[in-house]
Design a protein around this nucleic acid. Structure first.
Lengths: 224, 224
DNA sequence: TAATCCCGTCACAAACGCGTCACACCCTTG
DNA sequence: CAAGGGTGTGACGCGTTTGTGACGGGATTA
């Protein structure tokens, strides 16, 4: 599976869940003194604060390393300030990496996305083709029969979602969800506008109109 | 390439060779006043003592940075004591990192093992071409379709980093990291200015605008 | 020491993305 | 054919992101 499990000792997780569009690829969970609350499969990434409730972050770090269930996790220590002594201690306690806090969403996401792309390179999932359409996740670029499609970020996500679900009617609600839009709630009519814009972009690249309207249901990406 | 080449100004190398089991992953060599005795491929890590035989460690550090064959090395300064003034000087001289000495085997291994996983794969190639762009590491010169691009040092590194990661969205954080700027922390907006300057230089050499902005993500070096 | 170069930051204007609205058009149903 | 709901799309406005000239400090050179 392709999912990366992210554990944090802070509350940043909830905020990230809203922020990350690509929910299927990530899970977030709280890392308490007893370790992760649930056990997961797949690669794990832990961000450990230097100070936690009752427990020093270093101790948490050692416990993660000692526990066979989590010993493979990629551990990033969050230091409050840039003390070289602390950095050294963090590394010695088993951390792979550190950031100078406070932990921000972008700090987490940059790292996670970087990891993801590194993994993607291994699994070669960063590029896939559906019919004449090819999608390059690394370059964030789509092509129709080799011709680049000029897309804005939201349109790119939309097209990607269609490409991953070809020949299947997607309701407006599914599309809104699939693009990870939760707050604020999106008017379903807005999807119509998305579709219109995406169609125009595909046509401009020489593609036909692979997006078929299914009246009172939604839209399908027709693969012939 | 999976091998990390470690250079030391002290004799610790021999001792480490005995200590490290997994010899295939590391090579050790002495770093003398004239730099590394042999040229290597793959990532390099240099531990530079504050005082060397005839040469100040700072000078060694600068030479490593100035020499295109070693400019990518990860340089750790070894300070005898924790003098903040010295730390500042070390970082200014181009060190990525420092330890408060004396250098021990575990200090070396902790760092190397921790960071090895995220060592970017870098070709030690002296000259390579990407599309119309050619980069000559020895002459520190870039050309677009044969036309020289006038670049300042920082811009050269930036372009080089893009050339090594074509068709891949690079976040501002990745770029800052990729240019080896860790201390002091660089404002992400600064990257915008780098990009602007680099674009101007490329355009002046007759190149188009191969650097595409991906809004709210970063920049891509677009090939074809 | 003076002159010059390099580079990080700032501030502000411009460009951009996107959700919504309004209205015309389309299709279905009776 | 009429009625009514479903869909396409141009226009608008807001908030955010990006580009860039200007500035100043540090380093380098003359």
């Amino acid at each position: 599976m392709d999912v990366v499990n992210i554990f944090l000792t802070s509350e940043l997780g909830e905020s990230l869940e809203d922020f990350v569009h690509d929910q299927r690829r990530f899970t977030f969970d709280r890392l308490g003194p007893d370790g992760p609350r649930r056990l997961v499969e797949g690669p794990m990434w832990a961000f450990v604060d230097w100070v936690m409730d009752d427990l020093a972050g270093l101790e948490m770090c050692r416990r993660l390393r000692a526990d066979p269930r989590t010993m493979d996790a990629h551990v990033t220590m969050v230091l409050e300030e840039d003390d070289p002594e602390d950095r050294r201690r963090a590394l010695r306690a088993g951390a792979d990496d550190y950031v100078i806090g406070p932990l921000t969403r972008t700090a987490v996401l940059d790292r996670v996305l970087a990891l993801q792309s590194r993994q993607a390179e291994r699994h070669a999932t960063r590029r896939f083709e559906v019919g004449a359409l090819s999608i390059d996740m690394a370059a964030l670029q789509a092509r129709w029969a080799g011709e680049p499609i000029v897309l804005r970020p939201n349109e790119f996500r939309l097209l990607r979602f269609f490409a991953e679900n070809p020949n299947r009617v997607l309701t407006r609600a599914e599309l809104i969800n699939g693009l990870g839009k939760r707050e604020p709630p999106i008017d379903e009519r807005t999807v119509d506008v998305w579709i219109g814009r995406l169609r125009r972009a595909i046509k401009a690249a020489g593609g036909g109109n692979p997006l078929r309207t299914v009246r009172s249901m939604g839209y399908v990406f027709d693969l012939n």
